[in-house]
Design a protein around this nucleic acid. Sequence first.
DNA 1: AATAACTTGCTGGCCAGCAAGCAAGCCTAC
DNA 2: GTAGGCTTGCTTGCTGGCCAGCAAGTTATT
Lengths: 223, 223
Amino acid sequence: MAERVEKERNAARSRAAILDAAERLFAERGYDATSLTEVGTAAGVSRGTPGYFFGSKAELYRAVLDRAFAEVRDAVRAGRARALASNQAPEAILAGAVSDYFDFLTARPNFVRLIEREALSGAGLLEGVSHLSAGQEALAAISAELGLDDAESGDAAQLLLSIISLCWFPLIHARTVAPAVGVELERSADFERRKRHVVSLVLYGIAGLTRTAPTLAEAESHD
Amino acid sequence: MAERVEKERNAARSRAAILDAAERLFAERGYDATSLTEVGTAAGVSRGTPGYFFGSKAELYRAVLDRAFAEVRDAVRAGRARALASNQAPEAILAGAVSDYFDFLTARPNFVRLIEREALSGAGLLEGVSHLSAGQEALAAISAELGLDDAESGDAAQLLLSIISLCWFPLIHARTVAPAVGVELERSADFERRKRHVVSLVLYGIAGLTRTAPTLAEAESHD
DNA sequence: AATAACTTGCTGGCCAGCAAGCAAGCCTAC
DNA sequence: GTAGGCTTGCTTGCTGGCCAGCAAGTTATT
């Protein structure tokens, strides 16, 4: 068998391997529960190499986050450009965007888990990161799509947050809350059904929200 | 100064204080990042007392989860009973339930964070816990409320999961995703606005979903 | 072309620090 | 005085950071 895998020295390759391994381990087990020894082993290098390249565990973690955010930001931009280029109706574009976002997150469980862990840890690192721009771009896109002016963009932000909530949640709670309320999310067909439900809900919601004009305060009928 | 606060021996009191402190610390910092020394200090007992009462760190954690779940299950039952007793229209009941659930979670950040951390850690402990019953009860309530029979209860489950997603997310991501997309959640007025949006979205969604009869497959207009 | 001087990728031993768990013992209420 | 509530001393295991060192290049000099 080919035991002669790849043993030539290659800093770029090692760095990338370490980043990959660290991203997976940090996402799966969390920062504290991941040792640099494990990262090194998973990356096919020695215990000391992660420290050699990244200085400290904290800096390695930071590097993992930076790379992940950069990837997401690029994807959001690409998706927005694609939506702008197409000449579909606003509702179809929205439906497509929601569907694409759902798929995007589903394909990147590491990213979702990393952010989730960050949120639980106080999110100190996220504040400085350039991630905000991706959200702002998405918000502008949705406001434009729905034809809302600045005064109403608060509603667009609320809607965007709802879309994110709906796409995000199944990825975290596929084995906790979802089965507890009778939603299976084991097979990909289950995820497809979930996605269709989310898209439908968002579309019906938009229809209702835009019908009820500027502010939607009077939709409330409770206490 | 009154250094003589409360020094009488009281096992029940100490147990409860340890559970309270552990719940807070586990929720805020996570399992790994919380030491039994910290739990003891926060509970006003010594380093060794948590171990004395609960045997091990893992068993203490388990006890924290059990107590939290029991509280939630009771709250769900109480809320359901209240809804059944009232004679409001289905939509009003749903709106009230969503609003109440939103408030319930907002008042229990520890619970939300504990479950979130469990979900990220593989959720081994949640499978056995009696938490499932709360979800099933809520599901039955919603199905009955919307007048869905068993064949359609899958849609009710999807809707329930959406409601939970929408109420859950702002609590986790008030300082991460929410500000990134332009939704402020700092003050309670911000949370009120968010709650109103969620209730509206759910109501509009229900209107759309129930209008489109048994299965809502054809609501899809994308790829 | 050959060799010496130097850089860079990577390893593994060492150490300080901290956490969990155990066990022996102290203190208080009965 | 004794049982149970509670503390404290200690062990053991593990982690991250530091560092010395080595080997595989790379550059400069002849």
